[in-house]
């Protein structure tokens, strides 16, 4: 199961624990680490894995590290090398034939078109024009050697469903989702957290303390926060239900190349 440490991953992990109860979850969790995740995310990941006794595999594209690939200088290439390529390498290394992901169809338009069982060829490419029909709950799981399946069990959940389920089941999430006073800079209209001293400030930029929270979590330089007072789950849910903007607006990477950028990345093997 792919584990990105975000709220959807927290829900997926929780569902997996419940689905197999009283057996332990019979598969490992995989975190593809770009090394640019928020520090609080990594702390959270390690703590949860320890508490639950689950097998947590971390994969880092060491080649990318050697080349000094980073989100400030390399833009779209960074996402490709440290996320997409790293994920492919990890899946190949461990030979997984199927990987669960927490993708939801309400996130983005090309996601809205994807099946729950989504097939990838040996190069991990998705062929959106030729997806297998998927009828009722009758899933076709046959694959040939080299092919793999990405499985999205919570495809039909909405952001609001996720939050309400987190509240109902009391699921732990990374504290960054709650509003708190944090050091941030404003850059191209995004509020970016100054999470460590690798954050290169531009001329004239000065970190300021603001009460912010994050609707989605990823690499800190690419995840925009929102100013908010929502420091409880109830407040977050209320804010989510009345939000004027979709959650992906705060993802800097989605705006790289217009509306088809997500589909393009998915064709290339992005989750």
């Amino acid at each position: 199961m792919l584990y990105s440490i975000g709220k959807d991953s927290s829900v997926m992990l929780h569902l997996a624990l419940k689905a197999f109860y009283p057996e332990p979850v019979p598969f490992p969790f995989l975190h593809v680490n770009t090394t640019w995740k928020f520090r609080e995310m990594i702390e959270f990941r390690d703590r949860r894995a320890r508490e639950l006794g689950i097998e947590m595999i971390e994969y880092i594209n060491e080649e990318g590290i050697k080349q000094g690939i980073n989100p400030f200088d390399h833009g779209a290439a960074y996402t490709d090398i440290m996320k997409t390529q790293a994920l492919k390498q990890a899946l190949d290394k461990y030979g997984f034939t199927a990987a669960f992901g927490g993708g939801r169809r309400d996130e983005e338009k090309s996601r809205a078109k994807e099946r729950i069982f989504s097939f990838r060829n040996a190069e991990h490419a998705w062929d959106p024009k030729n997806q297998r029909p998927e009828m009722w709950k009758c899933y076709n799981t046959e694959i040939r050697k080299g092919e793999s399946i990405r499985v999205f069990p919570i495809s039909n959940w909405t952001e609001s469903d996720i939050w309400q389920y987190i509240r109902r089941e009391d699921i732990p999430i990374v504290p960054l989702y709650y509003a708190a006073v944090r050091p941030v800079v404003e850059r191209d209209g995004n509020i970016i957290l100054v999470d460590d001293d690798r954050m290169k400030l531009l001329p004239g930029e000065e970190p300021v303390m603001k009460k912010v929270r994050f609707r989605t979590l990823g690499c800190y330089p690419l995840s925009g926060g929102v100013e908010s007072d929502a420091d409880t789950l109830d407040a977050i849910i209320e804010e989510t239900l009345s939000a004027a903007e979709s959650e992906r607006t705060s993802r800097v990477i989605d705006k790289d190349s217009g509306s088809a950028s997500m589909e393009k990345r998915k064709r290339e093997g992005y989750f």
Binding site: A112, K113, P128, K129, E263
Partner: peptide
């Protein structure tokens, strides 16, 4: 709704798109 590049180019729908919305009375997919 037409989320795939080929759909937008050709102005047609190729595959199913799912949309989620809620009104005062019901939730819809």
């Amino acid at each position: 709704l037409d989320g795939l590049a080929a759909e937008r180019e050709q102005g047609i729908t190729i595959d199913v798109a799912y949309r989620y919305f809620t009104t005062k009375r019901r939730s819809f997919i």
